[in-house]
Amino acid sequence: MKPIATTRSATGIPTGKLAVWWLIASEIVIFGGLLGSYIMHRLGHPEFGGYASHTNTVAGAINTFVLLTSSLTAVLAHHAAEQKDGEKAFKYLWFTIAGAATFVIVKSFEWHHEIEQGYTVTANMFWSFYYCAAGLHGLHVIAGAIMMAIVSFRARAGKELQQVELVGLYWHFVDLVWIFLFPLLYIAK
């Protein structure tokens, strides 16, 4: 049983959801610091444009498509959870996890190819930022997939259905970060 404290809601926002909003706020500043540092260097160093021309826009676009689609399935899982349909939420959450897996697989092929060509993390500042930012984001993708897997089994058992929305919020945030990473690393050349 949860403490009484957990069941109270003075703000009107459920406690778990409130915590996720704070989590997202603290993640915004983590990614903000990294991307801000990158943009400063990008604007101060015209040569980054030349380096960036070697990123694989097609892979980036595929991954954008994958993440946008997984965001759709995440919100559909939330919708199912609201209808108290744990079974359906479970199904959609696993679609989302499949999206996360696809993302990571595409990413690993992409990185493999780039590293083979000599564009390693130490090649120059652009590639350092590239691997650092995409890597940090990739860790969030993996963490999100693990959390969704945990929540999905609870949802199928009809327990803690509100967590489907919480993990979905986190997933949308991961998607949002990628929405900005994609133009920063792939399109602006």
């Binding site: 909003w21 704070w22 997202i24 706020a25 603290s26 915004i28 500043v29 903000g32 610091g33 801000g36």
Partner: peptide, 12 residues
């Protein structure tokens, strides 16, 4: 709250 976090990043 979320916009404030973003605003702090613009400040930074």
């Amino acid at each position: 709250l979320l916009l404030t976090a973003v605003a702090f990043m613009f400040l930074f």
